[in-house]
């Protein structure tokens, strides 16, 4: 049930964040993304918070989803504890890496 709840909540969060992300990255000028463009955007704290939350929810959603897909197979279902921990670790590692990237635009 925990996976199910994580999946639902992160899905609702993503509906908001992903819409924002898609509109601002693809349909609002400037259309060519470069370091300066991202830096300008990330200089406001609001954008930083939005991007951090977005990163977290998308990782949770992706790994909860992959976990569900994999454990649907009976052979994998028997190892679901190990798979769950592996997913958690991937989320943490990817989150640290992504957060570091967001931080790199501080220069």
């Amino acid at each position: 049930m925990l996976t199910f709840k994580l999946q639902r909540w992160s899905a609702i969060a993503l509906l908001v964040f992903l819409t924002i992300h898609m509109i601002f990255m693809h349909y609002v000028p400037p259309f060519h993304i470069s370091f300066d463009v991202v830096q300008a955007r990330l200089s406001t704290p609001t954008w930083k918070i939005i991007d951090i939350l977005f990163l977290f929810s998308v990782l949770v959603h992706a790994m909860a989803g992959s976990y569900q897909v994999i454990t649907d197979f009976e052979s994998a279902f028997n190892y679901r504890k190990a798979l769950a921990w592996a997913s958690v670790i991937i989320v943490i590692l990817a989150f640290v890496y992504g957060a570091k990237t967001i931080w790199a635009f501080q220069l």
Partner: peptide, 18 residues
């Protein structure tokens, strides 16, 4: 969903160039 998961990690790597 699986395609988007693959894309997500590629995306993280591309942006990670920063």
């Amino acid at each position: 969903g699986l395609a988007l998961v693959l894309y997500l990690f590629m995306h993280l790597w591309v942006i990670g160039a920063a």
